[in-house]
Design a protein around this nucleic acid. Structure first.
Lengths: 372, 372
DNA sequence: CTGTTAGCGCCTTCAA
DNA sequence: TTGAAGGCGCTAACAG
């Protein structure tokens, strides 16, 4: 009835003994292979299992079948709310398939990340989801191109050339959408604020998108606009608030009475900006702010911050589907994902050597911070 | 050199064959039992392992040794940023001991939680950390008092009577501290805003703390203060924003010109309040707000919200320590935790039948929302 | 319809 | 200082 009623967990042998059949029969019962099983033994097995509170040992199962029904995920910084949303999405898919999730936090340290991946593989996971901290491209590439690696899918990151499936935000399009919005709201200058991208693909991609946009609109990067279009620049800092404050003040001051919009690369940078310039509120109208950030947070921050929400739950669901297609599905990841994902706007944005890049669209939410 | 260079993962037998010794010797080498081993074989084993890229299969190890070096955690709602912070803390401790973490999300559903716990046990975890969704008290109690259960520790929750170790916030003291602050700032009425506590211990505990405080200060709960002290009431809602809006308006209106402070039970409720009354900003000075909430969020929300931060990372570290003390440490959980935890203000707040309740202090952060 | 036999990769006596 | 043998709990042929 209830597990643990005895001294120790009963094993399949115990059940077999109780019923008076062999372990094989029990095994077959468990796997639903009762095509050729007498209804009587079936019933007796059923009650015996209930009686003893027997539950199969997944570990032992995995030892034999070489599939553990576990997948591993390494998260660059699990303390980040963004991470937990992605985990939520991953869980949704895994729960449906009764697959366990092994979670590791890399604490933003490439060495820890490598150790985590090794440890997960030692635990015999069937596949890996990697939200890399950056700086491990060589290692990851070597892994993916090595012998016969367990499937890996990258999350909110990718390496070039692609050596495995990846799930990311449509960073380029999203950035353009935000810049268009900023321009439309009459700002004349945009400052893309980002921490230095130590190998984090998302940061560099967004930065490049900004630079290309500005170049394409006849505005000079880090220079003044000379034709009434949107000018802009990229501000890279290292996490020092004082440094950031001084540089922001300089940038804003330089623009005189022109309307400037600060565009933060992520929530972390957005917080840094708010910390550095609490007086932003005082200059409403002249200084706007926006960011890649979770709508749930941005909406209630300060006066309400215009943001690009990356839909992390959807990203998690997508990455889990992509991985499962490689591990057990056997089928085409592309079909599996696009079928349901199309409605959400998920597309294959690139492919290389059979590896796909799935892009999940970011959603623009407009709030007061760019509307005065 | 690198793993996977061959067709398949090499096993201990392969290494043994390569070196020309028995598996036993390899096993001993791996466990550091080279007390009686010739330096030569030791060296040869070492190189063979490197050469083949051999790594022990934790799954197979666990099958025999009955310790899997995995612990499981079920989280009520992993999408909550609070959850991810707790996971961070848990990871910090587990990583140090090379223990893997199996994570399940219960999605606020008691049935899923039960299924998750069963699944984790099937995966042979050595112990469980449970952040219960509530409504599973009977099940959890039965588990803990059953045969010989794997150790369980509850996180940010507890059941009465205590049937296992628990780690929670010092909800009572924290609530009192906040109410003292509210009173000191000259508010005359406080409204504790909470969703209905469907078996979630933290919610009911806080609510009780509020009621007791108000009763103890000569003020009547849900009534007007008649002696200049702090009066107050508890507002329980069900997640409907319109309902909440109407009731908040009524409550605030009733107070006339009196200064009212809304005290939200958690971030979720705080967001609901902000959604229901965006005009709070317009009444700064007369209407204050505060909440149990993450400082990183509260600080930048609206004008800056006074909050009680639960230090979730520290809670995570504490719960992991408590569990490890039961699983492998063999030692006293109390000593293990209090030794380092004392500096952080962690105390044993209750004990029952050998089970301990560890309380992690919440920290009061004062911001503009209660200061005008 | 059901049982026998051999392992999966590792650990653990017991012998040598 | 090292092996051989048996078994953890389960699966997978191959026989009946």
């Amino acid at each position: 009835m209830k597990r643990d009623s005895g001294r120790k967990q009963p094993s399949m042998g115990d059940v077999a003994a109780a019923v008076g059949v062999s372990k094989t029969t029990i095994s077959r019962y468990l796997h639903g292979e009762y095509g050729y099983m007498s209804d009587e033994t079936k019933a007796r097995i059923e009650t015996a299992i209930k009686e003893l509170g027997y539950r199969p040992n997944r570990m032992a199962q995995g030892l034999k079948s070489t599939v553990s029904n576990m997948v591993g995920v390494t998260i660059a910084d699990i303390g980040n709310p963004f991470s937990s949303q992605m985990l939520k999405g991953i869980q949704q898919e895994l729960r449906a398939r009764d697959i366990q999730l092994l979670v590791s936090d890399s604490n933003n340290d490439p060495a820890i990340e490598r150790a985590n991946i090794e440890a997960l593989l030692d635990a015999q996971v069937d596949g890996l989801i990697v939200n890399t901290v950056g700086g491990n491209d060589a290692y990851l590439t070597a892994y993916c191109t090595g012998g016969e690696p367990k499937p890996m899918v990258m999350l909110d990151r990718f390496v070039r050339p692609m050596v495995c499936d990846c799930v990311a935000t449509n960073n380029h399009e999203a950035t353009v959408e935000m810049l268009d919005h900023v321009a439309a709201r009459g700002f004349s200058h945009v400052v893309f604020v980002t921490r230095s991208d130590r190998g984090v693909s998302t940061r560099s991609i967004r930065r490049e998108a900004v630079e290309r946009y500005l170049a394409g609109h006849g505005a000079s990067v880090n220079g003044a606009s000379d034709d009434g279009g949107l000018s802009g620049e990229v501000l890279v800092y290292d996490g020092g608030i004082d440094d950031l404050r001084a540089r922001l003040a300089a940038v804003v001051g330089e623009r005189g009475a022109g309307r400037v919009c600060l565009f933060a690369n992520n929530e972390e940078s957005m917080r840094d900006v708010m910390e550095a310039m609490p007086e932003l509120d005082g200059e409403r109208g002249r200084i706007g702010v926006c960011a890649f950030a979770d709508e749930r947070w941005a909406r209630y921050s300060g006066e309400g911050i215009t943001c690009l929400d990356q839909q992390p739950v959807l990203m998690g669901r997508t990455v889990a589907k992509a991985l499962l297609a490689r591990t057990c599905g056997g089928g085409d990841a592309e079909d599996a994902i696009l079928e349901e994902g199309a409605a959400d706007g998920i597309v294959v944005a690139a492919r290389n050597d059979g590896h796909l890049l799935f892009e999940v669209p970011a959603q623009l939410h407009i709030h007061a911070s760019t509307m005065r």
